[in-house]
């Protein structure tokens, strides 16, 4: 049987954690922009997480997740040396980087984990990379050093100004463009609302903007259609047609609405999972 051992676990901030998972077949094929789907245990839900890095030789795939609900609570309860039930991938299409000479990469919150491998790939291919990463506050800033290492210019933004500059990622992006930077493309990854406003910003300047969409998924192979969204008036399946799309064509409001369908269930499941682990700790 295939085994998906947790080779390393490292907290990045209070709610965001990195794990290296042993999955040689996935590591061999993984490309930036693709994702995996995992189940923590036999009864577990299938959840998608982006491939945040990989080591083909050691057969490792890195995931970075934020603890937001029941399944990520369960995942976070696993430790180095434990096994995950299922781990399938790489799914979705790799981010297209060919021919790009100068790109602004914009990451928001845990979205930075998804944006980092893309920035690294661009950098490795000789593209000039300007990164803008944004967080609510100083204590949840992640991956700053990693971004610095692969960016020709880096702007760190916090909503409250406790680290880097005070303001939104769109402020920094606007300033960079105003300063005369001519980008072939902007790649924005983060909360839907952030991506929507990045697109509004770049629209003014006519810069092509790629966003990475994270709808609710099950199979990740095009079988259920649960991940569908409207792009340019047409229905697309994010798991097979994406997850990257031209942001100017995405119906963000619909995506926000579809993402909220299980809100009540999720809140309840989250409380249950937290209670369970509190009990276990006692």
């Amino acid at each position: 049987m295939l085994m998906y051992r947790i080779a390393r676990k490292k907290p990045l901030n209070a709610t965001v954690t990195l794990m290296d998972i042993e999955a040689p077949m996935v590591a061999k094929k993984a490309e930036p922009g693709q994702f995996i789907i995992l189940r923590v245990d036999e009864e577990g839900e299938r959840i998608p997480l982006t491939i945040a890095g990989y080591d083909r030789e050691k057969g490792l795939v890195t995931i970075i997740y934020q603890v937001v609900g029941a399944t990520t609570v369960k995942l976070n309860a696993k430790n180095e040396g434990d096994y995950l039930q299922d781990f399938v991938g790489p799914l979705g299409n790799a981010t297209e980087t060919e021919g790009l000479k100068k790109v602004a990469v914009v990451g928001g919150g845990v979205g930075c984990a998804i944006a980092l491998p893309v920035a690294q790939k661009l950098h490795a291919e000789g593209c000039e990379v300007h990164s803008v990463i944004g967080f609510r506050s100083k204590d949840i800033v992640i991956l700053e050093d990693e971004f610095r290492a692969c960016s020709d210019e880096l702007k760190v933004m916090t909503d409250d100004g406790t680290h880097g500059e005070k303001g939104l990622v769109t402020d920094a992006l606007d300033a960079l463009i105003q300063a005369g930077n001519q980008y072939d493309e902007v790649i924005a990854i983060g909360p839907i609302i952030m991506m929507k406003f990045v697109c509004k910003t770049t629209e003014k300047y006519g810069i092509k903007t790629i966003v990475s969409m994270c709808p609710i998924m099950i199979d990740g192979t095009g079988m259920c259609g649960g991940c569908r969204l409207t792009v340019d008036g047409q229905t697309k399946f994010a798991c097979v047609d994406g997850p990257d799309f031209d942001g100017s064509k995405v119906d963000f409001d619909e995506a926000i609405s579809r993402g909220a369908i299980y809100k009540e269930f999720e809140r309840h499941a989250y409380d249950e999972a937290c209670n369970l682990f509190k009990k276990e700790v006692k």
Partner: peptide, 27 residues
Amino acid sequence: NLQGVYSANEFLTRINLMKAYREGSDT
């Protein structure tokens, strides 16, 4: 694409493969 519109595949997969009909299911 409204909330609450499913393909039969999604609806049935949640129920049959993921056992969402059971009380306390993760899905």
